[in-house]
């Protein structure tokens, strides 16, 4: 216990005149489920891209399990990119084989179990799927991995209720069985808020509030009303 999964110190990232991250300070302890909350453009995706080494900070320091993010640290991270799609020519089975080849810690057995649970036909082609089904495939690729850090960027956007419930169920399962840190960003809370034990609220590239969700509930009522209070 007490290990830090992600550490950010005064992290900055600019796109032209736009500051995506503006002096972000954040410490995420290992083994927790963290909701990264905030309106669109508050810096959630940029933060995740930085943790996975997709982009580099212009200033400040960022550490993932004590190391600077890069392709090496990505061995330990399962990442669902925002607005991601899957290779449309793949079948579910091909996607799993791809993951087995390239993603360390991917368990085919778990993935097959999840596919059955989420009612995905293994020979179904991604091209012929609904967005909800495609999202389920991509989510399985992330959560069927035995890695210490799972990062899901807006996993519920544009996804039907049934898929969403299945995804939440699968997530509860993953969290139950071990020492995993899970970061989930969302700008709508749906049924997911009971899943978080920590919440981080971002605005304009900064953390405006973070803490234990039960503490925040005591203070603001639900996460939903916390959001309404904080982003008024």
């Amino acid at each position: 216990m007490g290990e830090t999964a992600v550490l950010c110190e005064q992290v900055e990232k600019r796109y032209g005149a736009n500051r995506a991250l503006d002096g972000l300070d954040l410490t995420i302890p290992a083994g927790r489920v963290v909701g990264v909350l905030g309106p669109n453009g508050s810096g959630k995706s940029t933060l995740f891209r930085m943790i996975t080494g997709l982009v580099r900070p212009d200033a400040g320091r960022i550490r993932v399990f004590g190391e600077a993010p890069g392709w090496r640290t990505n061995r330990d991270i399962a990442y669902l990119p925002d607005r991601a799609r899957w290779y449309s020519d793949h079948t579910v089975q091909q996607a799993f084989r791809w993951a087995e080849t390239f993603l360390p810690g991917f368990s085919l057995e778990e993935a097959l179990g999840l596919a059955e649970f989420m009612k995905l036909p293994l020979d179904g082609r991604v091209r012929d799927m609904s967005r909800g089904q495609e999202a389920r495939v991509m989510l399985i690729l992330c959560i069927a991995r035995r890695v210490p850090l799972i990062i899901l960027d807006e996993p519920f956007t544009g996804i039907d209720t049934v898929s969403r419930e299945k995804i939440i169920d699968a997530l509860i399962d993953r969290v139950s069985d071990g020492e995993r840190t899970v970061l989930i960003s969302t700008h709508e809370l749906y049924e997911v808020e009971a899943l978080f034990d920590l919440a981080v609220f971002l605005e304009s590239g900064r953390v405006i509030r973070s803490g234990d969700t039960d503490e925040l509930r005591r203070q603001f009522g639900s996460m939903h009303s916390a959001m309404q209070t904080l982003y008024r």
């Binding site: 139950s176 009971a194 034990d197």
Partner: peptide
């Protein structure tokens, strides 16, 4: 079990 309870209540197993 913690897992069953978390599933049924749809809450974090840690809770």
């Amino acid at each position: 079990s913690v897992r069953e309870m978390a599933h049924a209540l749809k809450v974090n197993p840690n809770t």
